[in-house]
């Protein structure tokens, strides 16, 4: 289970990076980056998972006294929650700059933008 999730996350990171490196349309590059960030989140959550344990919520099923032996690690979950929200902010920022670039150059193809190329 952990291995499956972790492998999937790493494969998603690789696919996302491949897309970001090979596409020339700037919107497609941003889509690839969102896939890579989803992969990073899957990897982080799978690191915190432990087989046979439940979610870190203390209710009737998980009494406070036995919490240490029956819940999984809550810290990666808190980190990933933050990462997802910031990921949306980063995507919005990238999209705003991509739109601005389009308005100035009338193209989304970055291979046509060559001023800073060397």
């Amino acid at each position: 289970m952990i291995t499956i999730a972790m492998t999937t996350g790493f494969v998603l990171i690789l696919i996302g990076l491949y897309g970001a490196l090979t596409n020339t349309n700037i919107l497609r590059m941003i889509v690839s980056f969102t896939i890579a960030s989803t992969g990073v989140n899957v990897v982080l959550v799978s690191v915190g998972y432990m087989p046979g344990r439940t979610a870190p919520i203390l209710d009737d099923a998980v009494p406070v006294g036995s919490a240490t032996t029956s819940i999984i690690d809550p810290i990666p979950q808190a980190l990933v929650l933050t990462a997802i929200v910031i990921g949306l902010g980063v995507t919005a920022l990238m999209l705003a700059y991509a739109y601005r670039l389009f308005r100035i150059r009338q193209t989304l193809d970055i291979s046509k933008i060559v001023e800073l190329k060397w």
Binding site: M50, P56, I57, L58, D59, A67, T68, I71, Q77
Partner: peptide, 25 residues
């Protein structure tokens, strides 16, 4: 990991007493 690391175990033990929240996250 076979069991929680130290900071996670601290949160698991003390969250209910210190903060009173059910959801540790």
């Amino acid at each position: 990991d076979g069991e929680l690391n130290r900071s996670a175990a601290y949160y698991a033990e003390n969250t209910a007493r210190e903060t009173g929240a059910q959801n540790i996250v």
